[in-house]
Design a protein around this nucleic acid. Structure first.
Lengths: 195, 195
DNA sequence: CCATTAATTAGATTATTATCTAATTAGATG
DNA sequence: CATCTAATTAGATAATAATCTAATTAATGG
C-alpha cells in the first residue's frame, strides 16, 4: 500500500457531495442526470465528483444507449477503509503483543519499565530485560528508514532523556547499525513508507 | 451518525502529514517536538494538524511536566472507518435482501421487474407484485427526509418515466404520506441523513 | 444529416487550507 | 522574579478545490 493512494482515498471521501453520491449509489446504479436531480447540482459538478470517485476506482460506469450508469466498487471501499485500522492494530504496542502471542513475562517487563504514557522509567540493568526493552524500542522505528543521529536522538528522547546510552545500546545489541552517523534498523516492520 | 462528522473524519484523514502523524502515534504517544523532528515540520504546523486530529477526537493529549503527549484514540479510527462499508452493505439491495432473509419469491419478482441497472421495466399489474416493488422503492428513500414533489418526481424518474403513477401508488399503498405537496416516508431506513 | 439528450471539458470565481514566521501563553526551574 | 522550553495563536501566502456557466463531444433516432 502506498501512502499516496490511501491519502487520495480519504481525501476523495472527505467531501459531503461525494459521500452523498456514495450513499445514493449504495442503492444501485444511477445515471448522471438522476444524481444531479437528487443532489440539486449541475451536471458538470456531478461529472467533476464522479471523475474523482473514478480516479480512486471507487466508482465504475457502464454506458447504455445514451446514458451512463455509475455504480460502486465496494471492494475498493472496504479495502481502503480497513487499511488504517489494520495498520494501527498491527503496529500498535499492545495489539502487536497480542498478535505475536508475546508471553506474559515480556508483557510484564514492558509494563514495569514503561509509564502509561510510553516513557521509560529507567533503563533495565539486567541484560535480558534490557534487550526486551531495546527490541521494543526498535520495533517502533521504521524499517528501511535512515535516521540521522539528531533525529534518532529526538526519537529516543521521547522515551528517555538519556538518549546517548540507549542509542549506544541499540548498536551494541545489533538492533540498529550505523554508517557515517546515519542509523538504520534491521528490516522488521511493515508500513515502512508511511512515516 | 451525522454525515458532517463522517465527512470531517475523512477530510481530516485525507492529508499526507496527518496520516504520517497517525502512523507515528500508532507506535505510542509522542510529544510535539518529537513529531516536528521526525516529520521535519515546524511546531506550529504540527500544532495545526494535531488540533484537527483532536477536533475529530482521533487524538487525545495529556500534559506531563512541560510537555504534552499526544496519543491515538483507536476506537474513533475504527468507528468511522467502518461506517461507510457498513452503510453500503446494509443499504445495498442484494445485501439487504440477504440480511432480511427475504424469501426467494420476492427476490425473483424484483429481479423480473428490474433491469440490471436498477430501472423498472414495467409497473406490475398484480397487486401483490406491485406492492413488493413499491416497498422496494420506498426502501430506497430516506426516513425522516421531506421530499418536495419535484424532488420526489426526479427520484422516481430514475426508476421509471411514469413517475406520476408511481408517486400516487406510494401514497395509496401508504408507503409515503403527503402534506402540502411535501412527501415523507414512514420510518424504516437508517442513514436517513446522508442522501 | 439534423435534432435531441447526456456527459465532459474549459475557464472563472470563491472558499478552504497547509505551511511558514513572529508573537504569545503556560509551566517549570533556578 | 527571570529564564527556559514547549505549545498555541495570529497573520500572511500560496496552493487546492468546489461550483457555476458556456462550449464541446458522443451517441441515438428520425
Amino acid at each position: 500500500m502506498q501512502v499516496e493512494k490511501l491519502v487520495a482515498f480519504h481525501k476523495t471521501i472527505g467531501d459531503v457531495t461525494r459521500i452523498r453520491i456514495i450513499s445514493i449509489l449504495a442503492n444501485g446504479p444511477k445515471h448522471g442526470q438522476a444524481l444531479a436531480g437528487i443532489l440539486k447540482l449541475t451536471a458538470p459538478t456531478i461529472s467533476h465528483h464522479l471523475s474523482k470517485l473514478k480516479d480512486i476506482n471507487l466508482v465504475k460506469d457502464r454506458r447504455e444507449k445514451n446514458t451512463v450508469y455509475y455504480f460502486l466498487n465496494e471492494d475498493v471501499l472496504k479495502h481502503y477503509s480497513s487499511a488504517l485500522p489494520k495498520m494501527v492494530s498491527t503496529k500498535g504496542d499492545s495489539n502487536k503483543m497480542d498478535n505475536q502471542k508475546l508471553n506474559l513475562e515480556h508483557k510484564k517487563i514492558l509494563e514495569n519499565f514503561y509509564t502509561p504514557d510510553g516513557r521509560l522509567k529507567t533503563i533495565p540493568a539486567q541484560r535480558k530485560k534490557k534487550m526486551i526493552i531495546l527490541h521494543h524500542i526498535g520495533s517502533l522505528l521504521e524499517k528501511g528508514r535512515k535516521y540521522p543521529e539528531k533525529e534518532l536522538n529526538e526519537f529516543i528522547q521521547s522515551f528517555h532523556d538519556d538518549y546517548a546510552t540507549i542509542r549506544r545500546e541499540l548498536i551494541i545489541g545489533s538492533i540498529m547499525y550505523r554508517e557515517n552517523s546515519i542509523y538504520e534498523l534491521n528490516p522488521r516492520e511493515m508500513w515502512a513508507d508511511i512515516v
